[in-house]
Design a protein around this nucleic acid. Structure first.
Length: 362
DNA sequence: GAAACGTGGTT
DNA sequence: TAACCAAGTTT
């Protein structure tokens, strides 16, 4: 990797004769093809740091299309960081339900409170201070610093990594290549317009330098691109093989009262689906656990439903068999549980897998 | 450094 | 359909 941002170090040693990528060239392209996104300020203006923060957390490992309605909803409900800090965590989790990676919601809330308490309700402008806040890692710290505060920073996300790996035909596979790619990214930075450059890299990766079938003919950096010169842009970035995804099994106890209410509990505050609401169930194990009745929340005439609910998480697939019981109105909730009427489902922090379970009622 | 951590869309 | 992919962070 380059020890300094010297032009010579930017050249790909494998393909001599290619020019160095010119950041100004990318910025020109960005000015012509800039996409409008709800969290993006008008050209030449700085965005509210809170909005940058909110969008960047939501966009982690999540598509623009998926994030859009959640971003609009959060911003309407909690317009300022102090509003979010004042909200109960349960409300934030409920609003986040369906977006996934729920630690983001818990950290988003903790971060809002930290900004209010440590920084008087104002996001700090420097990368190091941002990095010290909960849920803000190297990428997000650099994104907020560059986009909201015009600091010199390189928010190296998956788009940056792909663009850089192709520009320099990096043969080292991810994730080992990350440090080297980041160094290359820092060396690419222009001398101004750091926020625009950061977003230009992301737009380039999202619209032209795509994982499959990249539109090299339209790329402002086709001339300096080593992968393009080699005729195989799609081969980059190389990636290490991923671990297989096992299947876990469990039984969910769907207790429905005569008045339509369903028996629900909250999950432990951290870990998988931490703090979210759920229908009680056995543990989710690879090997079938012992006697399911041991985990039943109450004594009832359980009957197994036909097909299991299936759901795929990031690191395992789940096959959840549903045991249902219909109970008289007035049945009390066991300790640690509560009855929730269908009208209250939307206010409940049900993750997607639990919405699938609840859809089996009727 | 590797594993945990969601979800929905595309190929 | 199984695999891959999307603006990563934490432990």
């Amino acid at each position: 990797m380059p020890a300094r941002s010297d032009k010579a170090t930017l050249r790909n040693p494998a393909i001599p004769g290619l020019p160095a990528p010119d950041p100004a060239r990318l910025l020109e392209w960005y000015d012509r093809h800039r996409r409008h996104l709800p969290w993006r300020a008008p050209p030449g203006e700085r965005q509210d740091p809170y909005r940058v923060f909110l969008s960047e957390i939501m966009l982690q490992q999540t598509t623009v299309v998926t994030v859009r309605p959640y971003y609009e909803g959060f911003l309407a409900r909690w317009p300022r960081v102090s509003d979010l800090a004042a909200a109960p965590l349960e409300e934030v989790l409920s609003a986040w339900a369906g977006l996934g990676y729920y630690a983001r919601a818990r950290n988003l809330h903790a971060c809002a409170r930290a900004v209010v308490e440590r920084h008087d309700g104002h996001f700090p402008p420097d990368e190091a201070s941002l990095l010290a806040l909960p849920g803000i890692g190297p990428y997000t710290a650099a994104a907020i610093a560059s986009i909201a505060f015009e600091q010199r920073a390189a928010p190296v996300d998956g788009n940056w990594e792909r663009v850089i790996a192709r520009l320099f035909a990096v043969e080292e596979p991810l994730p080992k290549a990350k440090a080297g790619l980041r160094a290359r990214g820092l060396a690419l930075l222009p001398s101004a317009r750091f926020g625009d450059f950061a977003q230009a890299m992301m737009d380039l990766g999202a619209t032209l330098c795509t994982p499959r079938k990249p539109a090299c003919a339209l790329c402002p950096w086709q001339a300096p691109c080593a992968a393009r010169a080699a005729g195989e842009p799609e081969r980059y970035p190389l990636k290490a093989a991923k671990a297989a995804r096992p299947t876990r099994h469990g039984i969910a106890f769907l207790a429905v009262r005569a008045d339509g209410a369903v028996l629900v509990r909250s999950r432990p505050p951290t870990g998988l689906l931490g703090g979210m609401s759920e229908v009680p169930s056995t543990p989710w194990e690879t090997e079938s656990a012992g006697d399911p009745a041991r985990y039943s929340p109450l004594k009832a005439p359980w009957r197994a439903l036909n097909a299991p609910v299936t759901h795929v998480f990031s690191h395992f697939a789940l096959e959840l068999t549903i045991w249902r019981a219909d109970l008289p109105a007035g049945t009390p909730a066991p300790a640690g549980h509560r009855w929730v009427a269908p009208a209250g489902f939307d206010a409940e922090a049900f993750p997607s897998v639990m919405r699938k379970v609840l859809a089996r009622i009727d």
